[in-house]
Amino acid sequence: MNFKKVLGVTLKNIKRSGWSTATSVIVMTLTFFVSSLFIISAYISNIVLRHLESKAQVTAFFKDSSAEESIISTKKSLEETDLTAEVVYVSKEEALKIYMGQHKSEPLLLESISSSIFPASLDVRAKNIKDLPILAGMLEKVEGVEEVVYYKDVIATFQKWADTVKYAGLFLVGVLGLISILVVLVTISSAIHSKKEEIVVMRLIGASDWHIRGPFLAQGIFYGVGSAFISMVFIGAILPFIYPYFNNVFSGIPIPAFTVFTVLALLGIELVFGALLGAFGSIIALRKYLKI
């Protein structure tokens, strides 16, 4: 049986399945739509998390009375702990320069400022952000340290939020995926059932297994692929609205825009998963009802 024939028989079966076809496609489209949303939010939260992590550092401000040598020796001993990725010493003068760089456009403000009002500091980045509290604790005990500041809470909160979204998403996608398989299973089973007589006759006149199974398998795959495609059309339609939303929520964090390539990659992955999901539902139905 050639491809065109299988397609012909499949389309006929799909038409005949009517409401079951509609149900299958709606449920599977929903599954893929929700999956896409979660993939997109996982992608964005990953970017945000990486950004926050790269910014994650402990800053220890030193009292004006602290000698530069003692700060440098603190820097050395921190570097020897093996926990730090980088330790940067920012002297009072450098702090002023940084401040001036940030406020170039306000000469009046700058005139009245001298390096004496800025504290010297150590910016410490950890190899692993989990070690930030340890480093902060160490710095707090150092003689001459005025204040220790770090972003630990922001990151932990965001990480928690991202994990919750991820697990809830995985769970929801899992449940919807299971329902999709069941819906395809029921649809294909009833399609097989309605063609029972025809299948018996085809067997008797010598149809091979795959001649009989092919169109049913193709039907399941068609539902999966079709639904994945429809859901991507919806995603494509709402993407221009999602993007500014996230950009707004995470203002200051550069989120790369979705390119045609990312969207096509997502479409490709979902088409493959659609085919697998549909095929899986069909195969279960075929195993159940078309035993030899």
């Binding site: 049986m1 050639n2 024939k5 007589e197 025809e198 018996v200 006759v201 085809m202 008797l204 006149i205 010598g206 149809a207 091979s208 001649h211």
Partner: peptide, 20 residues
């Protein structure tokens, strides 16, 4: 064992479809 949902042509053609 004719199939009621198929025409005479389609019933007879079935044998040939099976052999490809």
């Amino acid at each position: 064992k004719l199939l009621e949902s198929l025409t005479v042509f389609e019933n007879v053609a079935l044998t040939l479809e099976v052999v490809g």
